[in-house]
């Protein structure tokens, strides 16, 4: 009933006879809620139940042991490297695609989507093939005493590759919708390219940008496949949180595995809260019409 009332409030102008009968509305809402409960909330609750099955002390021990802390640190580090780089790349790519016409534009759009199309495991293996001991650049790297795979740079590279579409994909439609008139207006008023970008282009897409960054960050922290291949699973050295969870689980240390998993869950929940806050903010902006009305 509450859901039906909310629908009615959201569309005050919708005539009664255009909405579905109340039974249909309530029924559909219940189906959706049941689905959410079964596939999202139950597993979520299970994570915390399992994590706390041996009590609070065991939980705290599992998440504060040095190996877990190092995994947490490594996860934050890779995300901290990948997200800013993809932010810069994404803004540059979206700017180029949305505001300019150039040959090869469609090829660039396709390339940006590539990580979505390729299985993460394959992307990890590409880096082994390139930088591994037997890879194309392996001997050169060894001669110069540089370590990429089975080390932090490899983790960062794999994470960057897997997450680079997010910011660009989020920004391109927003920038295209904004058009180029405001930039033209800025130029006529004497603004250079740099001032136009900082004062006009970027502020007009800031919510889309933040949204892209959050999605990018969520994926960067949760990435398993690609990272698993290049990590080498060296405890306390090259294990990120998802990898650490897997190791604990494979050692039948279920309680610790779920405790560490709950950390990732917290990160995910935080992301979701931020995401819905941003959606709420940007929808509020969208409601005030920006198109000419009179």
């Amino acid at each position: 009933m509450a859901a039906a009332a909310a629908v009615a409030v959201k569309h005050p102008g919708a005539p009664r006879n255009l909405t579905e009968p109340i039974a249909v509305r309530v029924g559909l809402t219940l189906v959706a809620l049941a689905y959410l409960l079964l596939f999202l909330l139950v597993p979520l609750a299970a994570v915390f139940a399992e994590a706390l099955q041996k009590g609070w002390t065991a939980y705290v021990n599992a998440v504060t042991e040095p190996v877990a802390l190092s995994a947490l640190w490594l996860t934050l580090l890779t995300a901290g490297i990948a997200v800013p780089l993809n932010l810069v790349f994404g803004v540059a790519a979206a700017w180029a695609i949305a505001k300019f016409d150039f040959p090869g534009k469609n090829a660039l759009i396709t390339l940006i989507d590539l990580p979505f199309a390729v299985s993460p495991v394959i992307s990890g293996m590409i880096f082994i093939l390139l930088f591994g001991r037997l890879g194309y650049l392996g001997p050169w790297l060894q001669a110069h005493d540089l370590k990429i795979v089975f080390a932090v740079p490899g983790l960062a590279l794999a994470t960057i590759f897997v997450t680079f579409p997010f910011v660009a994909r989020e920004l391109i439609p927003v920038m295209q919708a904004a058009g180029t008139e405001e930039e033209e207006a800025a130029r006529v008023l004497g603004a250079g390219g740099w001032a136009t970008f900082w004062r006009v282009t970027l502020p007009s897409v800031k919510w889309g940008l933040l949204f892209g960054v959050i999605l990018c960050n969520a994926r960067a922290m949760g990435e398993f496949g690609a990272v698993s291949v290049v990590s080498g699973h060296i405890r306390g050295k090259t294990n990120t949180l998802p990898l650490h969870v897997e190791i604990l689980y494979n050692e039948y240390n279920f309680q610790a595995a779920f405790a560490v998993a709950s950390l990732l869950t917290f990160l995910a929940l935080l992301t979701l809260v931020l995401k819905s806050f941003i959606e709420w903010r940007s929808s509020r902006r969208a409601e005030s019409p920006s198109e000419p009305t009179a």
Binding site: E182, E184, R187, V188, G192, V200, P203, S204, S290
Partner: peptide, 20 residues
């Protein structure tokens, strides 16, 4: 360059900076 022509331009759809 358009920046140095000393023209004022009024666009059909105004092109006001919507966040300002």
């Amino acid at each position: 360059d358009v920046r140095h022509r000393g023209v004022g331009f009024v666009f059909q759809h105004y092109a006001l900076f919507r966040h300002m």
